[in-house]
Structures are given as C-alpha cells and as structure tokens.
C-alpha cells in the first residue's frame, strides 16, 4: 500500500479528503503512484517462489541453449567407443565431460544434454509463438466478428480437435524428406493452433460486451482501435497462461516424436531417450539425464504458467 498523497493534494482540500479516504474493497487503497494491472501482477509475481524458481530455470536453459560451449568443452557428436563405452556418471566431476557418464557410442551425456537444449527450446518457443500469433488472430476474428466467421473458424477448430495430435504430427513428418526445426515447428503448430483460438475466442467474446467497449463504440472508435486498445489487452491474460504451459508440452511432443523415430536431424533429448531405451536395464543413467532435463524444463514452464495465472486472475486478488 503506497503512502497517501497528502502533500500532493494539499492545495486542493476537496480532493485531499477524497484521497485520504480511499476505496476499502479492492485493496488498491489510496490513489498513490500509478499502478497498472500488469504492474500489479508483476509485483505480485516477484514474490512468488514458484515464479522465481521457474523463471530462474528457464533463464538458465536459455543461456545453455544460446551458448552451449560455455558449459562444456566436450564434443557431443563424436564418441570414443574404446575408452568411454557406457561409462557410469561421476557425479562429483562438475561440468566435466564424464559428469553424467557416457552413452553406448562413447559420447559425453553431459555434452549431449547441453547441446540438445537448443533444439528443444527452439521447437517449444517456435511452436508457441506461431500458435499464439495465428491462433490468437483466428480467435480474435471468430470472437469479435461472430456470425459467419465464427461458425467457419469454430468448425475448423472442431475438425482439428478431432485429429489425434501425435498421430497427425507423425503423418506430417513422415511425408517430408528432412526433419528440420522449422518443419517440426510447422507440423506441431499446424495441429496445435486451435487450443489458443478457443481460449482467445472466449476471452474476446467476454470483453466484447464490456461497458468500456460500448463506451469506445459510442465515441465512434473503429474496429482496429477497439480490438487493439480495448479488447486485446484485456483478453491477453488467459492466452499468456495457456501459452506458457503449452510451451512445455510442445517440448515434450518434440521429444516424443524423436522417440518414435521422427526426431530432428541433430542432437535432441528425444532422440537420446530413444537411443537410451536399448540399454535401459543395465545402464539407466543414459536415459535418466536427458529425460530428467526434459521433465525439469517442462516443470519450469508449468510452474511459471501457474504463477502467472494466479497473479493475473483478478478473482484471487
């Protein structure tokens, strides 16, 4: 609660009275410093352990993805079968190539986990950004214009909801020659955009009938202004939450596809998990580290999403 702005209003006694006696209900208190809803949410977020842990983990992952060379000197691609075949981890050898042990081809698991981060995050962020933009746009069109557009887009989302996600992705990826990052992003986004569309559509419809939108229309505001200035900022909150949590699930989806043999050309946690299953009985560590990293990343995004939802939900304030 910011202090009351008595000095500020001393010259206007009428208003000073209004300021000192502030609103009891919403806890906003006196009209102190400017406090936007986003700002309030941010202040609230900063105090949540879930948010702090989640975002620290994500920042760490991002740094690892951007500069993997900073974390390991080992080459993830080449292995030494003679010396390092399925060696157990040496958990005290921090940041050393043998920290997590070696896999069946004598490659450093630590290095592979580090270098695999980039592709996983690229796919996760790529898909999420694409579906947020495209799915959000579709949801906005359906929600705002209603009628024909709504029927069309809603039926389309129904169709996509009918397609089993992984099966669909497998079919798409099977039909291409080379599985690259953009291809995986495209395939997952193609099948996943409807999730955001539905959320956005609902949020837009709720806000479309709000009094402040009516007020803007009464002023003569055009569609563009109403959508961008009034509806979008108020409809964003649920989309952000869903997108954050979805990001983790798309990383999982990429790994699942890789496990099923439709992995990226390159290093990825999923294909390592796939490889590891061959020796899982005798050498579980080969599976444990890439799978552990995957879970940790997904967990980080889910924690972040949960924290954001609680901070943005006005009912919990």
């Amino acid at each position: 609660m910011p202090d009351l702005t008595k000095t500020e209003t001393a010259d206007a006694p009428d208003q000073a009275a209004e300021v000192t006696a502030a609103e009891p209900r919403n806890g906003a208190g006196a009209v102190g410093k400017p406090r936007s809803l986003w700002g309030d949410a941010w202040r609230d977020l900063r105090r949540r352990p879930l948010f702090i842990i989640g975002s620290l983990l994500i920042v760490l992952m991002l740094v690892v993805a951007a500069w993997p060379g900073l974390f390991t000197s080992a080459d993830p691609g080449s292995g030494d079968l003679a010396n390092h075949f399925l060696q157990s981890p040496n958990l005290t050898h921090f940041f050393q190539p043998d920290w997590f042990g070696y896999d069946g081809q004598g490659r450093s698991i630590y290095a592979r986990v580090v270098y695999g981060t980039r592709n996983s995050l690229l796919v996760g962020f790529g898909v999420t950004i694409t579906i947020t933009l495209f799915g959000g746009l579709m949801g906005m069109l359906a929600g705002y214009f209603g009628g024909f557009w709504d029927s069309l887009i809603s039926r389309l989302t129904d169709v996509f909801f009918g397609i089993p996600f992984l099966l669909g992705a497998m079919v798409v990826l099977n039909s291409v020659d080379q599985i690259t990052v953009p291809v995986v992003i495209g395939a997952l986004a193609f099948l996943g955009w409807t999730q955001i569309t539905r959320v956005m559509r609902g949020a837009v419809i709720t806000n479309k009938h709000a009094d402040y939108v009516t007020a803007a229309r009464a002023l003569g505001a055009g569609t563009k202004r109403i959508l961008l200035k009034h509806i979008l900022p108020n409809a964003m909150a649920p989309v952000i939450v869903i997108a954050t949590i979805a990001l983790g699930t798309y990383i999982v989806a990429e790994s699942t596809l890789a496990y099923l043999g439709l992995g990226l050309n390159g290093i990825s946690w999923g294909s390592d998990i796939n490889d590891a299953t061959q020796n899982i009985r005798n050498n579980p560590h080969v599976l444990f580290f890439p799978a552990g990293m995957l879970s940790l990343t997904v967990l980080a995004f889910i924690m972040l999403g949960d924290a954001v939802r609680e901070a943005l939900d006005p009912k919990l304030r």
Binding site: M1, A17, T20, A21, A22, E23, P24, G27, G29
Partner: peptide, 12 residues
C-alpha cells in the same frame, strides 16, 4: 457529504 467512505484498512 464531502469525501469518500472510509478505507477500512486505515480507519481515520
């Protein structure tokens, strides 16, 4: 009546 109803967090 001038002013606003009191803030119950800070009753005068």
């Amino acid at each position: 009546i001038k002013g606003l109803p009191p803030n119950l967090l800070h009753v005068p």
